[in-house]
Amino acid sequence: MAVLRSRLRRAFGVALFAGGLVLAGGGPALAAGEALPPPDTKFSFDGLFGTFDRASAQRGFQVYKEVCSNCHSMRLLSYRNLRELGLSDAEVRAIAATVEVSDGPNDDGQMFERPGRPSDRFRSPFTNEKAARAANQGALPPDLSVITKAREGGADYIHALLTGYSDPPEGFQMMDGLNYNKYFAGRQIAMAAPLAGEGQVEFKDGTTATVEQMSRDVTTFLAWAAEPELESRKQMGVRIILFLTVLGGLTYAVKRKIWSDVH
């Protein structure tokens, strides 16, 4: 039902957008304005027993740190959370120390800068929304803390969006400063293609950084960030459903036994 609703909602959004185009006199390009449903991508965290591929999520963090974090904040995460991805204490400390964090006030009443600590939240690229918009032609880069939960299609959508950039088809009217992306509602997105080409990021484990690979890794990282409880949740769920199935069998046997002298 959720999938159905999502389709409908997307269709509705597109209809609104298309309506806007009609009013703007852009009649012929209408059919091209509809966003494609994101293809179903296989991720390590899919399915009943899914877990996060740690290596992929670590690479994904690297992609976030070197690419996405220039514009997108992740305000709900702290550097210490990265230990859950298998990074050592020393590595987490080193990562945190690479950013300057504003702290204070000190005894003189002044704010001061200090190197980050593992307990600090991920540093935001902009100090406030106005600064973010000013640096991005008026568009606000959304916070990525729970982005896979905050978009229809979840991780599939994020992966599709990151790999969905292309040149607009013939006759598609682009607005100034927007980029063509067939998975985005209205197909015009303010974010320029963030993963531009192979080798944009140099992975330490030697994995070839194709756009597809970087996108998949960063999507895994974002999915982990949004649902760090996913693994324990699913493991617990399997156990509980097994338990309830046995208990259900027992209660049914008891019911049969108790009712046997009535029927």
Binding site: L48, G154, G237, K255
Partner: peptide, 24 residues
């Protein structure tokens, strides 16, 4: 006894939603 059976069946459906599709 009879309602316990129904309750457990409900719990199974509920647990499936909570643990495997909390956002659906």
């Amino acid at each position: 006894a009879k309602d316990s059976v129904g309750l457990i069946v409900y719990f199974i459906v509920f647990a499936a939603l909570v643990f495997f599709a909390p956002n659906i």
